[in-house]
Computed example of a mutant assay.
Amino acid sequence: MAKLELVAQLKGHNDRVWQVSWSPTGNMLATCSGDKTVRIWANTSHSNTSQWECIHVLEGAHKRTIRSVAWAPSGRELATASFDSTTGVWEYDERDKEWECVATLEGHENETKSVAWSSNGSLLATCSRDKSVWIWEVESDNDFECLSVLQEHSQDVKMVAWHPHEEMLASASYDDTIKIWREDDDDWFCVDTLKGHTSTIWAIDFDKTGDHIVSASDDTTLRFWKQYKPNNQEGIATPGNQPKWMNVCTISGQHERCIYSVSWSKVNGKVASASGDNHIKVFAEEPTTQTDDAPIWNMSACSSDAHGVSDINSVSWFPTEKHADWLASGGDDGNVNIWRYVEDGV
Rank of each mutant, 00 (worst) to 15 (best):
T104F: 06
S114F: 01
D84H: 08
R64Q: 14
L78S: 08
V157S: 03
F83I: 03
D130W: 00
C32I: 01
Q151I: 13
A72F: 06
P73V: 03
T104E: 02
D84K: 11
E91K: 15
A30L: 09
A70V: 05
I55D: 00
L123Y: 10
S118W: 06
H56K: 08
W117I: 09
S68P: 01
V38E: 11
S47P: 04
S148Y: 13
E53W: 03
A161N: 13
N48D: 15
T31V: 05
S140G: 09
L123S: 06
L123N: 10
V138S: 07
V38P: 07
N142M: 01
V157L: 11
K113G: 06
E59S: 07
V69P: 09
S45M: 15
I40N: 02
E106M: 13
T86G: 08
E139H: 09
L147N: 12
R39C: 10
S68V: 03
H108I: 11
E137R: 15
L29R: 09
W41F: 00
L124I: 00
A125T: 00
T37P: 04
W90G: 12
V138C: 00
A61G: 10
G75M: 14
S148N: 14
E109K: 02
S68Y: 03
W117H: 04
E145K: 15
V69K: 01
A42G: 07
V69Y: 03
C54M: 08
S47K: 14
M159F: 11
M159K: 15
W90Y: 06
D130M: 05
D35I: 12
C127A: 11
T44R: 11
E100Y: 12
Q51R: 13
K113M: 09
L105C: 04
E94S: 08
D130I: 13
A30E: 04
K36C: 15
A103L: 07
A116L: 07
W90I: 13
V57E: 00
A70E: 04
W134T: 06
T37A: 07
N27I: 13
I55F: 08
E77Y: 14
I135Y: 02
T80M: 02
S68K: 03
H153K: 06
N142C: 00
V157P: 02
V38A: 12
K63M: 05
